[in-house]
Simulated assay, not measured.
Amino acid sequence: MSIISILAIAIGLAMDAFAVSITSGILIKEFKNRHAFKISAFFGVAQGVMPLIGYALGYSFKSYIENIDHWIAFVMLVFIGGKMIIESRKSDDEKENFNPLNNKVLISLAIATSIDALVVGVGFAFLQVSVIPSCTIIAVVTFLICFLGVFIGRKSGDLFKSKAELIGGVILVIMGIKILIEHLFF
């Protein structure tokens, strides 16, 4: 597989994480550059590791993973997004404020947005792709795209401060529904 093909795959895989990075950038209250690095690192590592796991699983589990990957992503994104929407409706005193820098939240989001990379890794096993260089490219591309996404979210967050949590939750729910619809109907 050519480097151009791997880059195209990496960009495609990074798009869900990019959208979540924008949402995270909107929601961070006291932004520092290290926050963009942390978010990007979680997504980059997840996108780089999942194809390795998929590669290791190989052909025997391909049909099983393809049959449920969209459901896992859907449930995780709708759950997290729904929680954000509910929190946005509470008064400031009642809120548990959704924290996009919380490690548990980041792990959940990184896994939810990288399940498709797991299936790509299974495909790599059949195509006899050099998996380590390919996964490294996927991780680096995802990191860079997400880093940019956090800053885009940060800039647009200034426009939507009062509704950022609601908007972020709606975006995550929409992404979950989009993933489910794409896998079920297309």
Rank of each mutant, 00 (worst) to 15 (best):
L148A: 15
G149F: 13
K178R: 09
N103W: 13
G169V: 00
K163C: 07
I179L: 09
V75Q: 06
L166Y: 01
I177L: 12
W71E: 13
N97S: 11
S5H: 14
G123S: 10
S156V: 15
V131H: 05
I53M: 02
P133S: 08
E66L: 14
K163P: 01
A14D: 06
L180C: 06
A73N: 09
G176F: 04
S60M: 14
I26C: 12
W71C: 09
Y55A: 09
A46R: 03
P100G: 01
L106E: 09
G153I: 08
H70L: 01
S60F: 14
S40R: 00
A10H: 12
L101A: 07
P133Y: 08
M1N: 13
I177Y: 00
I68T: 11
G168H: 04
I177M: 06
S2L: 03
A125D: 10
I115Q: 07
F42C: 01
G12E: 03
V131F: 00
A56Y: 13
V105A: 09
G121V: 11
F43P: 10
D93I: 13
F37R: 05
V20S: 02
P51V: 06
N97Y: 12
L159I: 04
G149L: 11
N99D: 15
F79C: 08
L184Q: 13
E96M: 01
F18W: 11
I85Q: 02
H183A: 00
E87P: 01
L127E: 14
L144P: 01
E182S: 14
F74K: 00
E182N: 15
L127G: 12
F124C: 10
F61N: 04
T136M: 13
I3M: 14
K38A: 05
L184T: 12
I3R: 07
D16A: 02
G169D: 09
A14R: 03
H35E: 10
G153M: 06
D116W: 08
K90F: 01
F186V: 14
D69A: 14
G48A: 02
